[in-house]
Simulated assay, not measured.
Amino acid sequence: MFSLGSTHSYYLYGSPVDMRKSFDGLCGLVRNHLDRDPASGVVYVFLNRGRNLIKLLHWEQGGFVQYYKRLEQGTFTPPQKAGNGAPIRWPELVMMAEGILVQGYRQKKRYQNRL
């Protein structure tokens, strides 16, 4: 339980979401608009119109987990390249959640084991 980290895949839902949606509503968005399986183990990231609320939907063994954060001041700034259903990396999610805005960065190549 509570097992998010760099080993997961993250997808940002690009349109503003009504944050009254709970598990079933968010699963419906994933199925119908992203054409993906919400129970695949991928983490789906949702922002509201004002970008002061964020929800993460994640399937863990046995059921869905939802993470929810409300900012009292400021907004979440999604990565610039993020479109609807765009993959985002763990460092980008952490920077977005912490309010760190990086402009003009370039990711250097790193070794990836392709087993």
Rank of each mutant, 00 (worst) to 15 (best):
E98T: 13
S15G: 00
R89P: 03
V17W: 05
G104Y: 08
W90M: 09
Q80N: 14
K69M: 02
Q66G: 02
G41N: 05
S6M: 12
F64I: 04
Y13D: 08
H58Q: 06
K81N: 13
G50M: 14
S3M: 12
A82M: 03
K55P: 04
S9P: 02
P79R: 06
E60C: 00
G63K: 07
G50Q: 15
A39R: 08
C27W: 06
E60F: 09
T77M: 08
I100V: 15
R49I: 01
L4S: 03
K81Y: 12
S40D: 00
L4M: 08
K108M: 14
K21V: 04
L57G: 00
G62Q: 08
L57R: 05
A39W: 09
N32H: 13
K109W: 09
K108C: 14
L71K: 08
T75K: 06
R49W: 07
G74R: 05
K109Q: 12
R20L: 06
Y105G: 13
P38A: 02
L57A: 06
P91H: 11
S40G: 01
V45F: 02
Q80E: 15
K109M: 11
D24E: 15
V42N: 13
Q112K: 10
R20P: 05
K55S: 03
E92R: 04
Y13S: 04
L34A: 08
E60P: 04
S6P: 13
R49S: 07
F46C: 05
T7L: 03
G83P: 01
K81L: 11
V42I: 14
V43G: 04
F64S: 05
L93S: 10
M19L: 04
Y67G: 10
S22T: 00
Y13E: 00
R89H: 07
L4D: 00
G104H: 05
T7Q: 14
L12F: 08
E98A: 11
D37Q: 11
K55G: 00
V94E: 10
H58C: 02
N52K: 09
G85I: 07
P16F: 05
D18G: 07
I100Y: 03
V94A: 06
M96N: 03
T7R: 13
L29R: 03
I88R: 01
V43M: 10
L56Q: 02
G14D: 09
R70N: 11
K55W: 01
R70S: 09
P79F: 10
N32A: 14
D24L: 13
K81D: 11
P87Q: 15
L29Y: 05
G74C: 01
P91N: 02
G62H: 01
Q61L: 04
A82F: 02
R89A: 07
G99E: 02
W90H: 11
R20W: 07
G99P: 01
V42Y: 09
Q103D: 09
F2T: 13
E98W: 08
D18E: 08
P91W: 11
V102P: 10
Q73F: 06
G25Y: 10
A97Y: 12
